[in-house]
Write a protein that binds this DNA or RNA. Structure first.
Lengths: 223, 223
DNA sequence: CGTGATTTTGAGTGTCCTCAACATCTGTGG
DNA sequence: CCACAGATGTTGAGGACACTCAAAATCACG
């Protein structure tokens, strides 16, 4: 499990494409390496957002908690992704969501937020990459909004399967899927069962494969 | 109905705070003035996103259309707001949503997107303002996401009333409210009726006032 | 004062959620 | 290799909520 050094990770981080080596080297200096185990909290909503984390190894789930402990996953960041860039790079002082390591080990590099903000300010190419990245996130989130308003769990699950299971795919737990789709585990179970009975997916030992892409497509688009 | 000249509008546009006068003057040159009436389409989803619009007079609704013609309002931009900054400033080539003028007249200034992008690239203070703005939008949209997942129409309507009607407030039509809250007009009507009967709001000739802030607050937080 | 849009209300339906019981899987230690 | 415990998955029943369709009432405006 090699832990890449800060500089080589930075140069391969999509968000930082376009920054010259010197700028990145200046950031790499004060970097810290942090290691987490599955389930560990990286930060919690309300914590000061004074650190920028980049995933080196493993992955991290960003989520919010609602009434009754129900969770909504906002995103999952794996290698070379930046956690909650909006909170840290826009001047937010506190995190708006929780972050939790998904794998053991999950290795993160941490950078002082003000240093990163400074580098972004003074490196036009970097600023451009950050803007493009935030814009893309904005578009994604809006797509998710209208999926929640305009379609049901069936549609959203079908879309998930089409995206992840053209080839055999190891399903997350029903709880994880539910948090991703904005529902509860029982409903995920029922819908998966429905799809299986309809012959649209194959499902053995938590491995799914889409077998009738056409029908799932039809469903995900709402008939 | 004075139409401000492009430069003075630009200098007072929040998104462009921090740019020096010369930069803005360079943008103001190629600006066009466009006038719309209530209901006119400014652009539609799928249109090329090669123009940046800033509202000078009136307001513009950004929305998406789902199955059965149901609409979801993503945002309403009024004076000095920039329309769909994410599409135009992040390198998107097409608009992801529709935009429609809400008032007669609605006056917009239009700027070539590549010019604006260029200015943003080369003016660090501008880039910083754009990043902060996009980050704020990101946070807002995530708040909306979890409101949709974790709470019902009643909660969302209560939150709307608390935000807009501490003082008497002219209600939009039920259809408009429904598009804002992610539901249908009939439900808005019923919920407003409930609140009225409970004595939580006063409602005369489409003007609402919150009369029992405490109860609405309780509801909007889910008991 | 009439016409078209909007609001209100009723009735019926479907989806999702909750709670609870039961089944299955996974990994551990005997 | 088996037995067990805890986690996860499945299924049933009941209820809450939002949506649809349709009719009636009200409003806005010329």
């Amino acid at each position: 499990m090699p832990i890449p050094d800060a500089l080589s990770l930075l140069t391969r981080t999509p968000l930082f494409q376009g920054a010259d080596r010197d700028t990145l080297a200046g950031l790499a200096g004060p970097a810290h390496v942090m290691t987490f185990g599955r389930g560990d909290a990286v930060f919690r909503a309300g914590d000061p957002a004074d650190t920028l984390f980049i995933v080196a190894v493993g992955s991290v789930r960003i989520y919010r908690v609602g009434r009754g402990g129900r969770e909504l996953t906002l995103g999952i960041d794996s290698s070379r992704q930046v956690l909650e860039p909006a909170s840290v790079l826009g001047g937010e002082t506190r995190h708006a969501a929780h972050a939790q390591a998904l794998a053991t080990p999950t290795v993160l590099l941490s950078f002082p937020a003000d240093l990163v903000r400074h580098a972004v300010q003074h490196t036009p190419a970097l600023a451009g990459a950050v803007i493009a990245h935030l814009a893309r996130r904005d578009a994604d989130t809006h797509r998710r909004l209208d999926a929640l308003v305009f379609s049901g769990v069936g549609e959203r699950l079908a879309a998930y399967l089409l995206e992840h299971a053209p080839a055999p795919h190891a399903l997350p737990t029903n709880s994880d899927l539910a948090a991703l789709l904005g529902t509860v585990p029982e409903i995920v179970s029922r819908k998966l069962g429905d799809f299986y009975r309809l012959g649209w997916i194959d499902l053995t030992r938590r491995t799914v494969t889409v077998t009738d892409e056409r029908e799932l497509q039809r469903l995900s688009e709402g008939l």
